[in-house]
Every structure is written in structure tokens, then in C-alpha cells.
């Protein structure tokens, strides 16, 4: 079974995907007010994420939610360079970076700078 992680694109991220194949994968949400790309994630990968980040859950739509911000930032970077979502997520899960991501994710619970 596959699930999805929705990556919302702000203006900065939209600039970075301009001219890439990701542009074709953009989804309009809420009448174009939000742009998103869906990154496919396997069940096994989702389980690994739920183990690393206890708050991660799969919602009724089949989206993997409550992933830490630091993970989503890394995922976006990986998605820019990899062919598939599975590869992008594997790149993060199998790299040495994952320990740093887990450590940083814990501090997100303490303080996030307000806009």
C-alpha cells in the first residue's frame, strides 16, 4: 500500500521547481490558493517514519501527517534531485543525516519562531 506526503510550496519553493518535471506534478488546492506536490511513500517507509517520529500519523485521506518541519525541508531538497518519491525518502532515511534530523525535530517541540 502507498501513502502520500503533501509538500506545500510557498513562493520560494515554486521558484526552485520552475522548469523542472516537478512543475507538471503541481496540484492546485482550494481554488489555486495553495500549491502542493504529492510525494509517494511506501507502507514500509511510513512505518519507519512513525517509529522515528512518534507523532507521525496517517490521516483519513491516506496522507502521512505531523512530520517534523526539518524532515519536510530535507524531503523537498531530496525531491528536487531524485526521480521518485520513494528514492527521495530513502535518501533521507538511509543517510547519516537522519540522526541529525531526529535530534532537530525534538527541539521543534520546544520553540518555533513565530511569523
Amino acid at each position: 500500500m502507498t501513502y502520500k506526503i503533501g509538500l506545500v510550496l510557498d513562493e520560494e519553493r515554486l521558484k526552485l521547481i520552475k522548469g523542472t518535471k516537478l512543475e507538471k506534478e503541481l496540484k492546485d488546492l482550494f481554488g489555486g490558493a495553495l500549491k502542493m506536490i504529492d510525494v509517494e511513500i511506501t507502507e514500509e517507509q511510513a512505518k519507519k517514519l512513525m517509529h522515528l517520529f512518534p507523532r507521525v500519523r496517517i490521516d483519513a485521506r491516506g496522507y502521512v501527517e505531523e512530520t517534523p518541519i526539518v524532515f519536510r525541508r530535507e524531503l523537498f531538497k531530496a525531491v528536487l534531485s531524485k526521480a521518485t518519491g520513494k528514492d527521495a525518502i530513502d535518501e533521507i532515511l538511509q543517510s547519516e543525516k537522519i540522526n541529525e534530523i531526529v535530534k532537530l525535530a525534538k527541539t521543534e517541540d520546544e520553540y518555533l519562531p513565530p511569523p
Partner: peptide, 20 residues
């Protein structure tokens, strides 16, 4: 659909959810 966790995710990333 826009679940509570979807909106929380936007807010946490510093993205203002659209007014709709």
C-alpha cells in the same frame, strides 16, 4: 478536505492557510 493536522502542518511551517 482540510483536516486539523493538515492545517497544523501549514501553520508550523509558517505558511498562512488560505482564507477559504
Amino acid at each position: 478536505r482540510f483536516s486539523g493536522s493538515f492545517i497544523r502542518g501549514l501553520i508550523a511551517e509558517g505558511i498562512k492557510p488560505p482564507s477559504v
